[in-house]
Design a protein around this nucleic acid. Sequence first.
DNA 1: CCCCCGTCCATAACGCCGTTATGCCAATAA
DNA 2: TTATTGGCATAACGGCGTTATGGACGGGGG
Lengths: 220, 220
Amino acid sequence: MSTQNPDPAAPGRGARPLRRRLLDEAARVLAEEGPGALSARRLVRAVGASTMAVYTHFGSMPELVREVMKEGVERFLARVREVPPDADPVRELAGLCRAYQEFARAEPHVYAVLFGGSALAGFELSETDRSMGVALLRFPRDAIRRCAGAGRFHADTDADLLVRQLFAQMHGLAQLTRAGYILGRYGPDDVLAGLLRDLAVAAGDNPTQATTSVRSGLAG
Amino acid sequence: MSTQNPDPAAPGRGARPLRRRLLDEAARVLAEEGPGALSARRLVRAVGASTMAVYTHFGSMPELVREVMKEGVERFLARVREVPPDADPVRELAGLCRAYQEFARAEPHVYAVLFGGSALAGFELSETDRSMGVALLRFPRDAIRRCAGAGRFHADTDADLLVRQLFAQMHGLAQLTRAGYILGRYGPDDVLAGLLRDLAVAAGDNPTQATTSVRSGLAG
DNA sequence: CCCCCGTCCATAACGCCGTTATGCCAATAA
DNA sequence: TTATTGGCATAACGGCGTTATGGACGGGGG
């Protein structure tokens, strides 16, 4: 049934296939003008096609959005994977959180759809979409385990619980920052440093050491 | 085509004015079917009016949504105000957080518009809208100050920073819970208890005492 | 008294949206 | 060659927010 054309090489020269041009334009509009500007008619106008192009290649707008989100998750994963291993696991944990916040700030609309429950052109997260998001938690969870293994955190630290707490912290900070709620004397980076320091301290890390590791991991 | 009798159910004398009926219907639809179901045409159909009713009374759909949100904030504030003062300030802080999470679960769509950046019929938060949200932080901030005053938290605790950290935690947990991301071994209440316990411990509270106060404050 | 004006709102339209039935056309398979 | 199939344009449907127009009605001033 799936007629994935195995030969898109037919159009010579740089002619990207229509499907690709629609995806790229969708990502561009989403990034530059936000979810409100994303519509099937606008996309097809931009690539010089008719609305049928969307339905031939994707079936519906929500399915097109799903493809855009899939590529967004890959960029998120790539960012997280690029955080280098570190002899100081608390520092590495802070580096992961820094990558998280950076992605949320670089691609706020993609982030909002993935984790913020933002409805985009009728698209809603599926179970497998969510499981891909949860896969991201593997990295900080392992870092937390290494913190415990290195004696920085209590030996009986529950990494599965702690990583969920961390997830809530990172998501909350990202969303409130974008919504304009982190104002006044302390900015997002101050709150981020405070959250990480307190998480480490509550888990058993020495306060001075925690402060140092977090600060250096966030500066990384 | 439209009937001359706009509302067969309306008592002739003392009928709620059209403006009120539109607001109530909007709140009902938002609560029961979510933002996707909220439209001017649907509202006016439900109350037996024409689309002009929306524009006479509110000016635009976003303005109507703003009124709905204003009433939502009042319900949120009422909930938070009802948390009783407590001789144990850590317990009181947990009670405030419990009220926060309960509102977010009871009115998820209102909550999402207020704090989650969810765009609803073109409505976007204004600066004064945000400042009303920030006013909510007064309650936990004062509780934190009392924690420090009572010797539970370090005397030099920075309540302004800590309340922002708490805000991020509460918001993140509320949103991830609703998005279905808090799964597996630990549920939202476990994460909430962990977050509050760790916040207290990192602020200087005795771990055993913190666990007790938080648990009892959340059971409320 | 009447008229005049302002408020409220119904009608109908505009241009946007997602989606789909239809059918043409080109390339491929037989 | 002919038959089949996949890609896509055309044009339509119903729903959306919004607005120009004008009718109904009520209160205040002549």
